[in-house]
Design a protein around this nucleic acid. Sequence first.
DNA 1: ATAGTATGTCGTATATTTGCGACATAGATT
DNA 2: AATCTATGTCGCAAATATACGACATACTAT
Lengths: 116, 116
Amino acid sequence: MTHAKTAPFTDEQRQLARVAKALAHPARVAIIQLLASKTTCISGDIAAELPLSRTTVTQHLQELKALDLIRGEVEGLTVCYCLNTTLLRQVQQQFTAFFDQATAPSPCAPDAACAC
Amino acid sequence: MTHAKTAPFTDEQRQLARVAKALAHPARVAIIQLLASKTTCISGDIAAELPLSRTTVTQHLQELKALDLIRGEVEGLTVCYCLNTTLLRQVQQQFTAFFDQATAPSPCAPDAACAC
DNA sequence: ATAGTATGTCGTATATTTGCGACATAGATT
DNA sequence: AATCTATGTCGCAAATATACGACATACTAT
């Protein structure tokens, strides 16, 4: 044993995993889609559109906000959440690069040891 | 009063979240990258390349296999894991569609109620 | 000031994830 | 056969995620 066990993980891997985790719950996917579809920046109305309590929705909102994927601006009594499209575009590129790498030709090279 | 609380979540949202969850840990991202980089379909050698015990790596492998993102072929005494590039390409498209939707213009329309 | 409304935080309960040692299994090797 | 070797499963502990009611805060309106 005592193999190299290379450094924990690369920053790239941790970053991708972190964002993937943010999208790892239907509610958070739904929230992003909701914010993308609304022309007006809605606030807690989000909770009314999801099958979850307001408390739970707030938690999901906080998780997305922690990664800066969404932003909330206080507008008097209400809070207006919006997508951080700039960051989302960067994230999209990261995912694209990852998938491009993963789906690149010769996943199991021609002279592979097995048939998969 | 919009108490609709729409149906739990759409299949699309649940599917995207399910895959995102599979990518929500650095180890699983690393495994996919590893399989993509090796010309030969490695097996438990994967564990030797990660900072985790063999048991834990096996668990991550099972999670990826449960979603059919990777496949394992028994090759005598060893097992040969490979990426399911076909499925990965489909998944990539799902993510692309999601991000395209999320980063589309007019996230907060011109006449938005707030300034974000 | 008082009341009302939108929002977030706290505490808590339950479920899931993560990690690993110990054990079981099955094909290979002697 | 006896043994080695690669792999997976089991059981357990700790950490994290999920969900929500009750409470606190802050702004608005009467």
